[in-house]
Design a protein around this nucleic acid. Structure first.
Length: 258
DNA sequence: ATGGTGGCGCGGCCA
C-alpha cells in the first residue's frame, strides 16, 4: 500500500491537480495539509467520484488537514489532548489497520518569535499524543508538513540557513524527541538523490534553482518501517502551472504478513 | 534587513 502526504496550499485551487495525481498514483491514503477550507465546503463528492473517502478538519483561510483514503478512516481524532488549539492542524485515523497521524506543524515565523514558542510547545504536546497513540496502535505512521528540515542534507544551503527557521537546533531537537519514541524517517531508509527537497519558496525562482528544503516527512514505527519498501518525492506537480509550493511524498509498504 | 510570490479576500496576514 502507498501512503502519501501533500501540502496543497488551498484545496480549492489545487483540487484538479490532486484528483489527477490520485488517478495517476493510486495511493491507499493521501494526507493533505493547508486545505484552507471550512468543513462544509470540503469537496466530498469530487473525491467520492474518484473512488476516495475523506475525513477532514478545516477552517476558513488558514490551516486545515484531511485524510483521503480508498476506504473510510476509522476512529478519527481531530483534537490533541492538552492542546487547546483553534488552528486545525491534526487529524488521525485508521485505514486498513494502519494508524495514520497527519500533522501540519506550526511554521514558527522566526527563531525566538512568539510563533516559534508556539511551535515548540505544539510539538511537545503532539509528541505526547503520538506517544499515547503508539501504545494503542501497533502499526503507525506520522506524516505531513513538519516545517523542520531534519538535517543539513535536507537544506539547499546549510550555512545560509544555519539556526534559522525550519533548520534551528531547538526545532531539530523537538523532531528528534518525536523520532526517539520509536519512529524512523522512511525517506532515509533508502538511497536518495543528493539535494532532494519537498518544498521550494514561490519566490526567487527557487524551484528552478532547486533552492528547497525537505520538510514533508513520512515517519514509521518499527513495525511499519519493516514493511516499507520505498519512499520518494514526486516533483512533478511542483512543475505544473499554478502549483502548490510543496511536492507530494509517497511511501510504499508491503502487505502485513506478520 | 528587505524583498521576492502566492492564497485569501479586499487590507494585511501568513507562509
Amino acid at each position: 500500500m502507498k501512503i502519501a502526504t501533500w501540502n496543497v496550499n488551498s484545496l480549492r485551487v489545487r483540487l484538479p491537480q490532486v484528483l489527477d495525481w490520485l488517478a495517476a498514483t493510486q495511493p491507499e491514503v493521501l494526507a493533505l495539509q493547508e486545505t484552507k477550507l471550512p468543513d462544509e465546503e470540503f469537496p466530498v463528492a469530487a473525491f467520492q467520484e474518484a473512488g476516495y473517502e475523506a475525513s477532514f478538519s478545516g477552517q476558513k483561510t488558514y490551516n486545515g488537514v484531511a485524510l483521503v483514503s480508498r476506504t473510510a478512516a476509522q476512529s478519527v481524532i481531530r483534537e490533541v489532548p492538552s492542546l487547546e488549539d483553534p488552528q486545525r492542524r491534526v487529524i488521525a485515523g485508521t485505514v486498513q489497520g494502519v494508524r495514520v497521524i497527519n500533522l501540519y506543524v506550526v511554521n514558527g515565523a522566526e527563531v525566538g518569535s512568539d510563533k516559534f514558542s508556539y511551535k515548540l510547545d505544539w510539538l511537545e504536546k503532539v509528541t505526547a499524543f503520538v506517544s499515547d497513540q503508539l501504545r494503542e496502535f501497533p502499526q503507525l505512521v506520522v506524516l505531513g508538513d513538519f516545517n523542520i528540515a531534519p538535517d543539513d542534507r535536507d537544506v539547499y544551503d546549510p550555512e545560509l540557513c544555519r539556526e534559522r527557521i525550519l533548520c534551528s537546533t531547538p526545532e531539530r531537537q523537538a523532531l528528534r524527541r518525536l523520532l526517539e519514541l520509536g519512529l524512523v524517517d522512511t525517506f532515509r531508509l533508502f538511497e536518495q538523490e543528493p539535494e532532494s527537497f519537498s518544498w521550494w519558496d514561490y519566490r526567487a525562482a527557487a524551484f528552478r534553482r532547486n533552492m528547497g528544503l525537505r520538510i514533508d516527512l513520512i515517519l514509521a514505527n518499527e513495525s511499519m518501517a519493516r514493511r516499507c519498501t520505498a519512499c520518494r518525492i514526486d516533483k512533478g506537480p511542483r512543475a505544473l502551472p499554478r502549483p502548490s509550493d510543496h511536492a507530494p511524498v509517497i511511501a510504499t509498504f508491503r502487505d502485513d504478513t506478520r
